[in-house]
Computed example of a mutant assay.
Amino acid sequence: MRIGHSTTPPVTAVARVGALLREWRAARRWSQLDLALDAGISTRHLSCVETGKATPSRELLARLADALDMPLRERNALLVAAGYAAHYPETSLDTPALAQVRRAIEFILQQQEPYPAFVLNRRWDVLMANRAAARVNRLVMEGRTSAHANMIRQIFDPADLRPAVVNWEDVAGDLIRHLHDEVAANPNDHAARALLEEALAYPDVPSRWRRRELGTVPAPLLTTVLRSGERQLHFFSTITTFGTSRDVTVDELHIESCFPVDDATAELCRALANEDTGA
């Protein structure tokens, strides 16, 4: 279905979609030949689409989006830029349509007890968390409540969780790397760029983090060390995503599950859970 009544997208729309494709190719560091081969079209045809000389069909846009591995939100933006209606819905997690997804998430959070788990969106907003996450957060923040519902802000704000993170440079540096990658991979995501700039503006953030480090290979597992008085808690995390989603909201969710690195951390988490239940 097209937007409006015209059967052919206007020239301005074709120009916008061409610009988007060029930006995504640049983000992926692909040539026109690379993208054309992967999408199964000729380089000449792709060049005509990018310059506005050819009108891309919905099917062609889908093939190009598949080749570029574009997220669902960006696929919608590509379609709208070309004059078509968005294809993928964006549904609130609280609606009946996503009841099964929410139930699956709640099950994962519950199963992670007595260790922390969080549900985050693409902006690193904490949408849901299990009781273990609240217990550990309350412990290391000495009973204070976080001022932010966003993990980036929690980690970077000196008045929030940051003082409790023993290996702050390791953890914050990893988050900055993810933000740089997000900005590079999604050229038109102005909100991601704004969040990156906000994180970099906090006090005592290394100036070298303003530049994206290319070619660096992150460690397979990042350990987060939290302090509570003289005690320390050591966690590593795994990320769960919904790989076959057809909804923008679900496509952008990820569940971070924390696991104890050592017996002392595991025992402390169990003790906090027992106190919480009165066992």
Rank of each mutant, 00 (worst) to 15 (best):
I41A: 10
L78K: 04
A172T: 01
V140T: 12
T8M: 07
A273N: 15
S228L: 09
E106N: 06
L179Q: 07
L61E: 06
T224Q: 05
S6V: 10
R2A: 15
R246T: 08
R131M: 06
R135V: 13
L72H: 01
D247V: 13
D160E: 02
A273M: 03
C48A: 13
E267P: 00
D204R: 12
R211A: 02
E275R: 00
I155G: 14
L21D: 11
R25F: 13
W209M: 02
A172W: 00
L109K: 04
I108M: 09
I105E: 02
L120Q: 06
T43W: 07
E213L: 10
F156I: 14
A133M: 14
R63A: 11
T91Q: 05
H87A: 11
R58T: 01
T216D: 11
L37T: 12
N186L: 09
V14L: 14
D34G: 08
R29G: 14
P89W: 00
E142Q: 15
D276N: 15
A15E: 10
M1V: 10
E230G: 14
A185P: 01
P163T: 09
P56A: 08
I105C: 11
E213H: 11
P220E: 02
N137W: 02
N121W: 14
L233D: 00
D157G: 01
T249E: 03
A172L: 05
L200V: 12
R103E: 15
A184I: 02
E198V: 04
A81Y: 12
M151H: 08
A192L: 02
T95Y: 02
H234N: 03
S207I: 14
F156P: 07
A201K: 10
A219P: 11
Y88F: 04
S245T: 14
R144A: 10
M141G: 00
V17Y: 00
L33Q: 14
A62K: 14
P187R: 05
I41G: 07
V101Q: 06
L196C: 05
W124Q: 09
R144S: 11
G83K: 03
E267M: 12
A264W: 12
A133R: 02
A26R: 13
T145S: 14
E59N: 00
I255D: 01
P10F: 02
H234M: 04
L37Q: 09
R131Y: 03
A67T: 01
A185I: 00
R131P: 02
A77C: 01
L98R: 05
W209Y: 15
E182N: 09
D66G: 10
R231V: 08
I105P: 07
N121G: 13
D263C: 02
L98G: 11
D170G: 14
R162N: 13
Q100I: 00
D189R: 05
V171G: 08
S6G: 06
A172D: 01
M141H: 03
S47E: 10
T145R: 13
D189H: 04
E197F: 13
L127M: 08
R63F: 06
P158I: 11
G173E: 08
W24T: 02
A36Y: 08
E106W: 04
D189I: 03
A104W: 03
G215Q: 07
R63N: 13
R102L: 15
V14I: 08
T224V: 09
A86S: 09
A199M: 04
